[in-house]
């Protein structure tokens, strides 16, 4: 279903790998250079140079400002994400193994997938108040979907005969879950987690942009309202780096955990 995934990073064979790396570095550099040129050309304070952005980020890191807000943002985001992971995997496995749960819930999940659940955020605010709980809840709700769906499809794709083998050996439900379904569905589950991660970041930033007094989103808005584009862009840069690191972590984790599938490409 709505499973986003990234394309393999290989081009056609004739572009040798090293050449590609060089080309990649070149294009990223070119992008930075283009920005820098534009910034200097416009001369407007509203388009800061790379240097000032990076410098500002360094200052904020040094002063501890970034870390303070990052801890808050990531604390909430990762809590909601963890909830979504536990609930999503459980739900996905239940749906895949039990026809009744599948029949009852999967159509509802599919139907509500395209609804922008962020619109329910005000309801969450009323329910949980304006503290972290409402943000954790909305993150958990949205991230639940890709994780549950990917787990569901992952378990269903497990070779039926592996399940027979488990039953043949007299394995009970818990054992089957631990030794067959979880490892077998692991590649899909991790793909779902990789999809859900950017969703978590978007939601947490949106909720903080909307009316928070702390967190990285707030920091961006604050800098914006003080007409400090370099400050705002510094936080944006920081967010980008965090997002990139998280994504890479998941890729590495996948390679380690799914060690038996050689050439697993994410």
């Amino acid at each position: 279903m709505l499973v986003g995934s990234l394309a393999p990073s290989s081009s056609k064979e004739w572009v040798p790998a090293l050449g590609r790396l060089a080309l990649g570095a070149l294009s990223v550099t070119a992008a930075f250079v283009a920005w820098e040129l534009a910034s200097r050309a416009s001369g407007s304070p509203l388009m800061p140079s790379i240097g000032s952005i990076v410098g500002r980020l360094a200052d904020d890191v040094d002063s501890g400002l970034i870390w303070f807000h990052a801890r808050i943002t990531l604390g909430r985001g990762l809590t909601g994400f963890a909830l979504a992971t536990v609930a999503g995997i459980t739900l996905g496995v239940l749906m895949a193994r039990n026809r009744w749960i599948d029949a009852a819930i999967e159509p509802l999940l599919a139907a509500t997938y395209p609804i922008p659940k962020l619109a329910l955020y005000p309801v969450f605010l009323f329910t949980f108040g304006i503290g972290p709980a409402s943000k954790i809840a909305i993150v958990a709700l949205e991230c639940l979907y890709p994780i549950a769906y990917n787990t569901y499809q992952g378990v269903r794709s497990i070779d039926r005969q592996l399940v027979h083998v488990a039953e043949n050996a007299g394995a009970g439900r818990l054992r089957k879950f631990r030794d067959v379904f979880l490892p077998g569905a692991l590649p899909s589950i991790l793909a779902g987690i990789r999809t859900a991660m950017p969703i978590m970041l978007v939601l947490i930033v949106v909720t903080e942009l909307l009316g928070e007094s702390r967190g990285l989103g707030f920091l961006i808005r604050f800098a914006g309202s003080n007409f400090e584009p370099d400050g705002a862009l510094a936080v944006v840069l920081f967010l980008g780096i965090i997002g990139f690191i998280f994504d890479r972590l998941i890729v590495v984790a996948t390679r380690l955990l799914v060690f038996w599938e050689r050439g697993v490409r994410l």
């Binding site: 070779d159 005969q161 592996l162 027979h164 083998v165 490892p183 060690f259 038996w260 599938e261």
Partner: peptide, 10 residues
């Protein structure tokens, strides 16, 4: 014993 080998790959 099934037609295809059914070992747990992990």
């Amino acid at each position: 014993v099934f037609q295809q080998p059914t070992l747990f790959p992990w």
